[in-house]
Design a protein around this nucleic acid. Sequence first.
DNA 1: TAGATTGTTAATCGATTAACAATC
DNA 2: TAGATTGTTAATCGATTAACAATC
Lengths: 238, 238
Amino acid sequence: MSESVRQENKEKEVLRPTVSPAVINRLPRYFRYLRELIRMGKTRVSSLELSKMMNVTASQIRQDLNCFGGFGQQGYGYNVNYLYTKICEILGVGIGFRAAVIGAGNLGSALVRCPVFEQRGVDVVAMFDVDKTVVGKKIGNVRVYHMNELEKRIKSLSVDMVIFTMPKDCIDEIVARLQKTSVYGIWNFTGTELESDSLVVENIHIGDSLMALCFEVAQRMEQEKRKNGKDGKKPWEK
Amino acid sequence: MSESVRQENKEKEVLRPTVSPAVINRLPRYFRYLRELIRMGKTRVSSLELSKMMNVTASQIRQDLNCFGGFGQQGYGYNVNYLYTKICEILGVGIGFRAAVIGAGNLGSALVRCPVFEQRGVDVVAMFDVDKTVVGKKIGNVRVYHMNELEKRIKSLSVDMVIFTMPKDCIDEIVARLQKTSVYGIWNFTGTELESDSLVVENIHIGDSLMALCFEVAQRMEQEKRKNGKDGKKPWEK
DNA sequence: TAGATTGTTAATCGATTAACAATC
DNA sequence: TAGATTGTTAATCGATTAACAATC
């Protein structure tokens, strides 16, 4: 039973206050790959095996997982189901988070139909907009309410997090209103860098990702051009 | 004229082979904030001013920009328009990249209507699918072609990059086909970690971002719970 | 027990920040 | 010229990797 005692001690560390952002951003990847292992019927995995699947070092995997406690066993590795359960706990998958989309335009409407919420254990329970042509309607399975019902509906529907897809200029006002509600987090698609002391914010910058790709593509094109120069020599070799 | 000579020398460094990923990912942010400055009618900005706008250190800004050459002037700062032009050059905004969306399902259809492409200087010139009910139609302004025309249309339309929104199981086959074309880059929305030696890949993992938010929200909830415990003491103070 | 593989410490690497000489 | 602010080097910080003792 010394193992279970050790594991209990370790699990208290789930409460530890500080986990580095780099580790946090990798947690969902572990979630995905563990689900894949389960689908494959694997019951056991070593950090080395997993590292090859995920294209990272085994050291990093052990280091990352140990931020949250000792989930493995020397000489054996990790039990896939147990580890998956722990990762789900850490990520709050079992909590049944409830989300609302603010803004029922193109982006909001596309997002709300997106399988990502179901896949990751989040329920979208409401949408909000000011446009009277959509208020009262359903998009996907989700009812659209008028923005002036925001606080009321957040309360009655127990909303934990909101998704920002409305125009930029409403951000400040809406954040101020949310601070007085039960909402803890914002998933921000408005294309701004939003920061808040009272609320957790995750900013999505899809355009920045596209541009990073453009940069790399432009570089490759340059390289190619140089390689195919008349004498086949790179400029700095001339 | 010593300034222009210096600047010419520096600008050769745009060809330098290695820029760290951290810097690359920040370039689009400079692009955004410079556009904002132009919109505001500012003609001049110091690294300190910009650092306050962007919520980063002035040191980092100077360091980042210097990877590509000396765009500023001691005692003056940076000329907004000049810097913007340079950043656009680096990111290939002027190149007029041409993109095609592979997969005309929900995600592909939503993406193609998305203003992000126009905003960042990318033209979407084609979509591809195997579903005969969409082939031949237009989504947004973009014609959908059958997948068996992939190579042919990529060639005739001079496609530089593709956007993956089709199901995961087609990835390998399509990557193999793309390697024989003019396509340099893949913007990958399939939810997998795609890597390729021959093609530049930018993976988008929207679900991972949502889960990172969930983690932080779960942590906040825990904190709250502890704070509101009967005796107001945190567990480790008991 | 011997072999395997973790948990964890120490070493390395890279990225960020601070400092300041160069110079506009 | 004096003041301002860059470009750049050096110092710090944090994250990754290597190594190995602990232990299943």
